[in-house]
Design a protein around this nucleic acid. Structure first.
Length: 186
DNA sequence: CAATAGATCATCT
DNA sequence: GATGATCTATTGC
């Protein structure tokens, strides 16, 4: 079942935790979310939205349930899902996926064989899933790019800790992952 | 093993 | 013109 918009219309941290175990689907490729990070708006110096409303960040201020995709370091894309009501910035960075379907395609796009290396990082999963700037602003509650609940039981326990790869507010415990899962990054 | 350099560009100052 | 929510290859213990 595709997650309804109401799933995303909640506090960002709740959405980040509840997205663990859900499935990102893009075309024939699919992967289970095993690691996320929350970026919680204006007061979060590490969040892009803290700089205010710009052409780039307007998606984060928009309707929940849309993708925020941005290009970083001249090489990689990162995938976020917008949370919180329209006008209230907040998004969840998807940091790692467990490959489920379209694995041959992911191997071809990544150029590596090892299953654990296909999507165990923000830049890796976007490449494996074929996600780029064209999907920025896309609605993930319909179409060929969605987030679904496949009915599998929630995997416990959930661990939390500091976010990775940022300089500001680097000690906030807003990173969540499935403890012991071998597809988590790093 | 850990540390670092290089790739390379959208976005903002 | 600087910066960055990354990754890989390479260098140096």
């Amino acid at each position: 079942m595709i997650l309804p918009r109401s799933f995303y219309d909640r506090p960002t941290v709740e959405v980040a935790r509840d997205l663990l175990g859900k499935v990102v689907v893009h075309g024939s490729a699919a992967g289970r979310i095993v690691e996320t990070e929350a970026y919680v708006g204006m007061h979060d110096a590490a969040a892009h939205a803290s700089r205010g409303l710009t052409p780039r960040t307007k998606v984060i201020f928009g309707e929940p349930g849309h993708a925020y995709v941005y290009f970083i370091y001249g090489m990689y894309y990162c995938l976020n899902i917008v949370a919180e009501a329209e006008g209230s910035p907040g998004c969840v960075l998807i940091r790692a996926l467990e490959p489920l379907r379209g694995i041959a395609l992911m191997r071809r796009r990544r150029g590596v064989e090892r299953l654990e290396a296909l999507a165990s990082g923000p830049g890796k999963l976007t490449l494996a899933m074929g996600i780029d700037l064209r999907l920025n602003g896309a609605d993930v509650t319909e179409g060929d790019f969605t987030v679904e609940d496949d009915g599998s039981p929630a995997e416990h326990p959930i661990a939390e800790g500091p976010r990775i790869g940022i300089r500001k507010a680097a000690d906030w415990p807003l990173r969540f992952w499935l403890k012991g899962n071998r597809f988590v990054s790093r």
